[in-house]
């Protein structure tokens, strides 16, 4: 822990929640890099609010809500930013980014089923994917999701229902799910 008492106080408050925050960030962003970035951004925002943090009885839903709001805010920013292309490629010997580099251990963990489910999840709308992963993958209750996202329970239920139906449809279409309509 840091020798700086202020930083130590912040760490004492936040540390117990970091694993859960990271898991939520990963579910929202789907990648380690983005999840780490999201958690980092949240910690930077929270650090000046140490007094407020220490006065909150149940930090878990509060922190989750801050992280979710940060995610939504950044997603909006992402959508509004575009690179400007100034020159077309002119035959310079430029390489592509594609290539090896995956961690072999990580690759070994990726079973066919997991990759197919992830692929299908990636094709859901962000609204549907978010509530589906929070509820069915992370086990958040409907009321907890309501607190974190500010979305009504009725809307969450509706999104969950449609998200599951769409996911079944996608997995059935690619042959990895043998539903009644397969």
């Amino acid at each position: 822990m840091s020798g700086d008492p202020t930083a130590a106080e912040f760490e004492t408050l936040i540390r117990p929640h970091l694993d859960r925050l990271y898991r939520l960030a990963y579910r929202l962003t789907l990648t380690v890099a983005d999840a780490q970035d999201l958690v980092q951004d949240v910690l930077v925002k929270l650090y000046p609010r140490r007094d407020e943090l220490s006065s909150i009885d149940d930090l878990t839903p509060w922190l989750s809500r801050v992280l979710y709001n940060q995610f939504v805010q950044q997603t909006r920013r992402y959508r509004s930013q575009r690179f400007r292309v100034v020159l077309e490629t002119d035959g310079d010997p430029m390489d592509s980014l594609a290539g090896p580099g995956e961690d072999p251990a990580e690759e070994a963990l990726r079973s066919f089923d997991i990759s197919e489910v992830r692929s299908a999840l990636g094709r859901l709308s962000e609204d549907h994917r978010t509530v589906l992963l929070m509820h069915d993958a992370e086990g958040y209750k409907l009321q907890e999701i309501q607190i974190i996202t500010g979305i009504s329970v009725g809307t969450i239920k509706s999104r969950l229902h449609r998200a599951r139906a769409r996911l079944r449809e996608l997995l059935t279409a690619d042959g990895t799910f043998s539903g009644p309509n397969a």
């Binding site: 840091s2 700086d4 202020t6 930083a7 912040f10 760490e11 936040i14 540390r15 970091l18 990271y22 990963y26 380690v32 999840a35 780490q36 958690v39 980092q40 910690l43 930077v44 929270l46 650090y47 990580e106």
Partner: peptide, 16 residues
Amino acid sequence: EGPAPDFFAQALANAA
């Protein structure tokens, strides 16, 4: 997939 091993410590230090 978990974060880098020292991620939490580094992220807390960065925030400070």
